[in-house]
Simulated assay, not measured.
Amino acid sequence: MAPASSIKFIDTALSCTSPYALSYPDPKQKWLIRKHLLSLIQDYPIFTPSTDTFTHNDGTSVNLLNATGNLRVSRYTPPIPLTIWVHENYPYMPPLVFVLVNSMTPIHRDHPFVDLSGSTSSPYLQTWLFPRCNLTNLVRKLVKIFTHDHPFIYNSPVAGFSHPSLVSRMEALDRLSGMLHYDMMAFLAKNEEEVENLSKLQEELIKRDTITRNMISSLEQERSSLKDNVTKLTDEADVVMNWLRVNDANSVAVGRDEMEEAFEAADEESKLKIECLSGDRAIEDLIYALDKAVEEGTVPFDAYIKQVRALAREQFYSRAMLVELAKGRHLFSWSA
């Protein structure tokens, strides 16, 4: 049986006809509200009825009944200060449930059924349907929800779940909603991290793209500059060639024989030195060519040895002649 004081308060509030009367115009609705509130207080004496002005999200203000109390779901967890507002269209609209927030016991972030402001929701409220649903069953569902997922941050072991076969369909739906909520929050957190990483990568790619475009632009400018220089040098070369054709045609037409005459020896001794040096270098080149031919197998080894001996003898005479010419003597004749 509900306390007499609570019964008297509810009856007085519902029968009030002053300007401050509650926003429940239908007598049948008032009777159902009285019945459900008294049933709630009888099963959960912790709740105390009261009236106050409630402001909806759209700014509409109404005078409503509410029940406030500290709901304890377990002896290991702190009590939950709860306020249940009876909607002006109750029982066809679900009640409005709020957890009172305080600094000593803050609500933990990402709770599946309670946001940081204390506004509470659950599958039971979301699927509210009269006459199946009422205030007493709502509190029973909240007790089960908060037993497994307490809204406050505190240091205590988390209660374990009972076997799925031992819970009701609605309780299983509550647990499933909670697990889906946490999975969704984990998924969103992972997605936010991936988006942040992709944003950083995008910024890096944009930076690299800018650097690459600047490099390409610089190379294009350099290429254009080089083309201009080539054109300028070509024009200058044409000018020089035209000048040479006009002013020094004989120099341009110098043949190979005339070029060789430019290195003609001044005397017999110099001529002999040039011939000895050229002969020595020619023999060196020939011996090198013979070495390669032997390696490739195109010249027999016997023929190679015979030829190298003859070339070495001739090279010896050339080098000896160079030594004597350097000393200023002439011990060997070129014919030797």
Rank of each mutant, 00 (worst) to 15 (best):
Y92T: 12
E284A: 14
M1G: 14
A293P: 13
Q202D: 07
Q126D: 13
W128V: 06
A172F: 03
L40H: 00
L205R: 11
E194K: 00
S39I: 00
S168V: 03
P78E: 02
T210G: 13
D302T: 12
H108S: 09
A265R: 01
R34M: 05
R213H: 12
V73N: 03
K30T: 03
L40V: 00
D26E: 03
T212I: 15
D149I: 10
K273G: 02
V143F: 11
A249L: 11
Q202R: 10
S74C: 04
D58Q: 03
N89V: 06
K144E: 04
R223S: 10
I283T: 09
E220Q: 15
E261A: 13
D267R: 06
K232A: 07
R169V: 07
G69A: 02
D302R: 07
E220K: 15
L277P: 04
V308K: 13
N63G: 11
P300T: 09
A289H: 07
S74T: 07
I206F: 09
I41H: 05
K200P: 00
G328T: 05
A282W: 05
L116C: 04
L22M: 07
A262L: 15
R34D: 11
N229V: 12
L38Q: 08
R169I: 07
A253M: 12
V252W: 14
Y304K: 05
F54V: 09
D267M: 10
A289T: 10
F332N: 03
G255C: 10
A189D: 12
D291M: 08
D183V: 13
V101H: 15
H111I: 00
A282N: 03
P45N: 01
I7R: 13
L71M: 05
A303M: 05
I216L: 15
I283N: 06
L290D: 07
H148M: 08
N242S: 14
Y90Q: 09
C16K: 15
N242T: 12
K273W: 10
R72T: 14
Y124D: 01
V254M: 15
I80Q: 04
V246E: 15
V239R: 13
E261S: 13
Y90C: 11
Y182I: 10
L138T: 01
L142S: 00
P112R: 00
F301D: 12
V299C: 03
L64F: 02
L40Y: 00
F301A: 14
D209R: 13
S251Q: 14
P45A: 01
E314I: 04
I305C: 15
C276K: 05
I80D: 04
I107S: 09
D52K: 15
K327V: 09
F161L: 14
V143T: 09
G255P: 04
E171G: 04
V323S: 07
S270T: 14
N63T: 09
Q42P: 01
K207Q: 11
D302C: 03
S61F: 01
D174N: 13
E268D: 15
L32N: 05
F54T: 08
L272M: 10
L166C: 10
R34V: 01
L82D: 11
D228G: 12
G328P: 05
L38W: 02
P157D: 01
A289R: 11
A4Q: 12
I107C: 07
V195G: 02
S156Y: 11
Y76H: 11
K28E: 08
Y304M: 06
R313C: 14
L201T: 06
I305W: 08
A21T: 14
A253C: 10
